[in-house]
Nucleic acid binder design. Structure first.
Length: 244
DNA sequence: AACGTTAGCAACCGCACAGTG
DNA sequence: TCACTGTGCGGTTGCTAACGT
């Protein structure tokens, strides 16, 4: 497969968009839509590659984009969805109207990851227990649902582990994972900087070092959640998020 | 005031998939 | 089946404003 020449080689512009370019792109799309991103910049008279136009539109110019700070509720949702889905930013974004995958990714890396680190939170990216070869985070893996449906027969797929309010790891059959009872609870104290020591009381995955050792022997929650998510992906829909 | 460092964000890069001929 | 194109996605980079010394 021959890769298309990059923008620079084509004499196309890179870097920050000017208000004029934004204006051109917006008015063109409003008039003509964006059927073909590659052809769009030429038709619109922009010295940009189609990819750049698409990114600018989807991440910034789209009329339904919600700008501004993330609410506490949105941050909670991101945390919970990340717990379930890992770095599937687009899937997470799909559950947050008006937010883009890029924005969510940025928020995760700049705010939430840091915040959760203070709680000793183990992200799905980190190595997990005994389920070898089931890493759900490698780049290629993030795409696996599309080509390699997870088999319910796979070891570790039938059950998921969650940690309950008392930090006891529970093994739960995947179909039961749909119950909101198994979703982590995040209370007010998580959002205040002062209470950083009571992590284990706040988030089921935020456990002490000692408990982490214990937890490490069990398959991670996202092993099961990935299967769960894959099922819905294949079914063409995602479940409604539980109330929290 | 000047400089260095850090944080936040927009944009780019490259891979992989889906669709088409 | 293969070659190719268009698009989507996640990871990464680089710019800049804010902050600290």
């Amino acid at each position: 497969m021959v890769r298309a020449p990059c923008c620079e080689k084509m004499g196309l512009k890179k870097g920050p968009w000017t208000p004029e370019e934004d204006q051109i792109l917006v008015s063109f799309i409003q008039k003509n839509g964006h059927g073909n991103w590659r052809a769009l910049p030429k038709q619109a008279g922009l010295l940009r590659c189609g990819k750049s136009c698409r990114l600018r539109w989807t991440n910034y110019l789209r009329p339904d984009i919600k700008r501004g700070n993330f609410s506490k509720e949105e941050e909670e949702t991101i945390i919970k969805l990340h717990e379930m889905l890992g770095n599937r930013w687009s899937a997470i974004a799909a559950r947050l109207p008006g937010r883009t995958d890029n924005e969510i990714k940025n928020v995760w890396h700049t705010h939430l990851k840091k915040k959760l680190k203070n709680y000793n939170y183990k992200t799905p990216q980190e190595p997990k227990g005994h389920c070898s070869g089931d890493s759900t985070v490698a780049k290629s893996d993030s795409k696996t649902p599309k080509t390699e449906p997870v088999s319910p027969q796979d070891s570790c797929s039938d059950f998921s582990s969650v940690t309950n309010d008392n930090n006891h790891v529970l093994m739960i059959k995947n179909e039961e994972m749909e119950s909101s009872d198994y979703f982590p609870q995040i209370d007010e104290s998580f959002w205040s900087e002062e209470n950083e020591n009571s992590a284990s009381e706040i988030h089921p995955r935020m456990v002490s070092d000692e408990e982490q050792v214990h937890q490490f022997q069990f398959p991670s929650i996202d092993d099961g959640m990935n299967f769960w998510y894959d099922l819905f992906i294949r079914a063409g829909d995602l479940p409604e998020l539980p109330e929290f």
